[in-house]
Design a protein around this nucleic acid. Structure first.
Lengths: 103, 103
DNA sequence: AAAGTATATACATTTATAGCTATATAGTTA
DNA sequence: TAACTATATAGCTATAAATGTATATACTTT
């Protein structure tokens, strides 16, 4: 397989490699949301949230549209939620493994 | 959901967020391998490869054992391959989307 | 035990990320 | 059009990640 693919795959993982960005995606799981809803959910300043949104947008994971003064974001591709779910499964598997070691 | 979970999920994605580490996992898809097989496949110095292996090991994604002078690495949890496969699906979906725009 | 081999770690350097404050932009309302 | 609101960008600083060279460690062979 071409090394180019590894770079592109790594780019996707990079986009998800921050707790704030994971949380943003979680917030967008059931419905699109205005930035004004996302900012208060994330314990950081508005410009920082905006940067995280732009990272996810640049990677093609989110899209947005303007609605008056507000900007609405949503997840482009439901596959992303499968990535998030899988990462949780992996955590569970790790915990289970450790539990067995100490049991 | 607790923010702690987002941190742990992000940690997993961080571990995968480098082309060399994606490629290492790809190499370990079908069988365990000696470091001496992994190094020549990755266009970088042996100590750099060793660091990437240790990042994946620290995150619990890889395990290793010594076999004489050699060290054999393998993937702990097949879920990780599903993450890699999904990331490829996401790439395909992006390409397909762009293709349609220009069609 | 000395020399050799495979892998890991330490150190120094460079580059990339992330966060904050300040400011710009785009749209709205008075 | 002036003031206001929501969001994005710029500039700076601090922290983290990645890489290469040099060196240490662990094991093997002679």
């Amino acid at each position: 397989m071409s090394d180019k693919v590894f770079i592109l795959q790594a780019d996707i993982f990079k986009a998800l490699a921050h707790p704030a960005r994971v949380k943003i995606l979680q917030l967008l799981k059931n419905r699109e949301r205005c930035v004004c809803e996302i900012v208060p959910a994330l314990d950081m300043e508005q410009p920082s949230v905006s940067r995280h949104l732009s990272i996810l947008r640049k990677e093609g994971i989110l899209s947005c549209r303007k609605d008056g003064l507000k900007v609405i974001y949503w997840v482009n591709d439901p596959y992303v939620f499968e990535l998030l779910d899988l990462s949780k499964e992996i955590l569970k598997a790790h915990w289970e493994k450790k539990r067995k070691i100490f049991a």
